[in-house]
């Protein structure tokens, strides 16, 4: 038996890559931002992250084993990513039971009800976040003060929240910007917000690592950021007193986090470059529309979820250019 030859169809060699390796690369890419959040928000950030990860892993295992009756696939790393992303999307002071409920929504509703990894339509972490945001708006929007390096700029609201409130109270941009952190601070990560969204720079570094490792392609992040940047610049040029400068839009809130880590989620984004650009531009336009004209200060989560819903449609109608095709 042992000396029989194996016969299989070609190809007979296979790349070293595996689903698990890809997933862990995403995790590595999130580590700089995670460390920064612990630095800024203290051990609370670590507490929130650990609870979210543990809850996501546990729910995946339990649901797969006892409800779906399949072999649990906890070790593939996807639940770990969902857990970290979920933690990245909440303020550090959030009570533990809200995170657990959010994890249940993320894994149960967002992922496993569709059949698990690869079959979900919506990004599970965002399903969890939006579920929490709508169910517990107060806890989800009370931002603890940050321990900033250097000046003790204690912010208890996100820059976007400040802008939104200021504009709706009829203040002009120049009046509002006095209470805003500088754009450089925002870029480096000295501002209020959810765990993962504070430092745009570290998120970009993580994104570059993923680009280098070919976990993601440039299409989605660039399309999202470019469309937000262009629209914000256009409005700002027309009326700088009613619209903040594009820098605030690019470096504030979850835009970087969303564009680099959540919009690029493989399962829920389109499958070819053309489709990915359409998807990215869609996210950018919806995000900036919500930020400027909607009632929420931040819109990236909704924008990504809305475009997730369009992904199957984009996949059906946007085809890659065939070799030798017209």
């Amino acid at each position: 038996m042992s000396n029989l030859l194996t016969v299989s169809p070609s190809p007979h060699v296979h790349t070293d890559d595996s689903t698990r390796k890809i997933m862990y690369r995403v995790v590595y890419a999130m580590i700089p931002a995670l460390i920064w959040s612990v630095f800024v928000f203290g051990l609370d950030a670590l507490r929130v992250t650990l609870i979210a990860v543990a809850a996501c892993l546990a729910f995946e295992y339990l649901i797969q084993k006892y409800l779906m009756k399949v072999t649990p696939s906890v070790s593939d790393g996807s639940a770990l990513i969902t857990g970290i992303l979920l933690a990245f999307n909440v303020p550090s002071g959030i009570p533990w039971w809200i995170i657990v409920i959010g994890s249940l929504a993320a894994m149960g509703i967002g992922k496993l009800s569709f059949g698990g990894l690869g079959n979900n339509i919506f990004n599970p972490a965002l399903v969890g976040r939006v579920f929490m945001l709508i169910s517990f708006p107060a806890q989800m929007t009370s931002w603890p003060s940050i321990r900033s390096a250097g000046v003790d700029s204690l912010t208890s609201a996100t820059p976007l929240g400040v802008i939104k409130e200021g504009l709706s109270n009829g203040l002009s941009v120049s009046e509002i910007s006095k209470s805003l952190p500088s754009q450089v601070d925002m870029m480096l990560g000295s501002m209020g917000g959810s765990l993962g969204e504070v430092s745009a720079l570290l998120l970009i570094i993580g994104g570059l690592y993923m680009l280098y490792k070919k976990v993601i392609t440039w299409h989605i992040p660039v399309a999202v950021l470019a469309s937000v940047g262009i629209i914000a610049t256009a409005f700002w040029l027309v009326d700088p007193q009613s619209y903040v400068s594009p820098g605030y839009h690019l470096f504030s809130g979850g835009l970087m986090l969303g564009a680099i880590f959540m919009a690029t989620d493989m399962v829920t984004s389109p499958m070819n470059p053309k489709g990915q650009i359409i998807y990215g531009v869609g996210i950018g336009v919806i995000t900036i529309s919500i930020r400027m004209f909607g009632s929420y200060p931040e819109g990236i989560s909704f924008a990504i979820l809305i475009m997730n819903a369009f992904t199957p449609l984009i996949n059906t109608y946007v085809k890659p250019k065939r070799f030798g095709g017209k």
């Binding site: 038996m1 030859l5 194996t6 016969v7 169809p9």
Partner: peptide, 14 residues
């Protein structure tokens, strides 16, 4: 008796 082992997609057609 088996003379080799098949290792491909598990369908007869393939």
């Amino acid at each position: 008796p088996k003379t080799n082992i098949f290792d491909g997609a598990d369908t007869c057609a393939i």
